[in-house]
């Protein structure tokens, strides 16, 4: 079997895999990182979204072998100890979930959205950008609120040191 190695949440991992192994199954079955979910398995729902080299991708539609040498971040890699990532905290505060199945993918997509479009996101933009993430519980209302609040909150840590430096 071919060998794949990549960095997952800052840690270098190396495994022999069947070439068919999808990134999501590699994360869940080989690394036991089960926070990344399989929803539809047809790249529609976005429950499997992770970051690969800083970009949100659907890990059900990527071979683990294609990600050889990449840096992958999953939902497990966001928090710092007991401190949730600002986007996770925003989902908690705004109750941007019900059953929680879609939430890891929503959060990974939302963080990627902030990286691409900045911290001030209007409702229209957020709804458009969530096109590839499906939630069957919430009706999206609180998810949209959480993404907007999380985007603003993500700005804060970067600004504090800059202001302190002045």
């Amino acid at each position: 079997m071919p060998t794949v190695s990549m960095t997952v949440n800052g840690k270098t991992v190396r495994r022999d895999v069947d070439p068919r192994t999808l990134l999501v199954n590699f994360l869940r079955n080989d690394l036991r990182l089960t926070g990344t979910h399989v929803g539809c398995d047809t790249s529609q729902c976005g429950a499997c979204v992770v970051h690969a080299d800083g970009r949100a991708i659907k890990s059900c539609t990527s071979l683990a072998l294609s990600c050889d040498g990449m840096a992958v971040t999953t939902i497990e890699g966001l928090a710092t100890g007991a401190d949730l990532h600002p986007m996770q905290e925003a989902f908690r505060q705004h109750h941007g979930l019900q059953c929680g199945y879609c939430t890891p993918g929503m959060i990974m997509t939302a963080i990627d959205l902030v990286a691409r479009k900045g911290h001030h996101l209007d409702e229209h933009t957020i709804r458009e950008e969530l096109e590839g993430n499906i939630c069957r519980c919430t009706g999206y209302h609180n998810i949209v609120k959480a993404v907007a609040a999380g985007a603003e909150a993500m700005k804060a840590p970067a600004e504090v040191p800059a202001m302190a430096a002045e």
Partner: peptide, 9 residues
């Protein structure tokens, strides 16, 4: 084309 994650690949 597709959605944001699809456009990343």
């Amino acid at each position: 084309v597709g959605d944001p994650a699809v456009r990343s690949r």
